[in-house]
Design a protein around this nucleic acid. Structure first.
Lengths: 111, 111
DNA sequence: GAAATAGTGAAGCAGTTACTTCAGTATTAC
DNA sequence: GTAATACTGAAGTAACTGCTTCACTATTTC
């Protein structure tokens, strides 16, 4: 699994923009062309292509060009890597709280 | 659960920086003061405070000042919100793939 | 109460980001 | 082969980031 810090930078950076998240959202419902991704967004096609390049560089999206149409897909492994990083930290924190709770409960028993 | 797009912007933006992720990592092992957070980082204390403000604005970290020491803690609910957003999209995509697989399997049966 | 500690706030600055427009290149349709 | 489609690429720009330094304010500690 990709745990390269630079890759995480790129993924979280990519997800930090609402236009890009809406593109990921759209792609989570199935592949789409650049124009289809652009359609609901209030910005030029050029801007959408630039966002798409960010998503592709982050590894979250893979694209393939057939004829004049560039078709885009989600790369679920990259999503999983980002999810995993967050999950690990949250579990570490929650585990700590649990152990603290146990300790306090035991301490209380002993008094 | 916080699904405000602007809040997600702030959270992902906050996680996009390696210094801030390292601060979250440190905090996942327990609360820390600003100086303790700064210690492993090769930057001024001022810079660390600025990163901390970003983390706090995103909701990922909560801080409390007692005397002259500001103690920082992870806010696991915020982590969970970010995790949840990613998870939903990944599951949508994977569910789609599964249904496509089923469809292809059925189609094959019928021939 | 003087000195050390812990953090705060503002100004400044180089680099990056999120767009824009405009001009271009393939590919496909008629 | 002409026109429409689907992008692509470069240049420009305004706003935002991630630092720095320096001056400062509270709190402890001795």
């Amino acid at each position: 699994m990709l745990h390269d810090p630079a890759q995480l930078d790129l993924m979280f950076q990519a997800l930090a923009d609402p236009a890009r998240r809406s593109m990921v959202e759209r792609l989570s419902r199935g592949p789409a062309s650049v124009s289809q991704l652009a359609e609901p967004l209030a910005m030029s096609l050029s801007a959408v292509v630039q966002h798409l390049n960010v998503l592709e560089a982050s590894g979250l999206v893979r694209t393939e060009k057939l004829g004049r149409v560039r078709t885009c897909q989600i790369e679920p492994q990259a999503l999983r890597a980002a999810e995993h990083w967050i999950n690990e930290r949250r579990l570490a924190w929650e585990g700590r709280l649990d152990r603290l709770g146990d300790f306090l409960a035991e301490t209380k028993d002993e008094t």
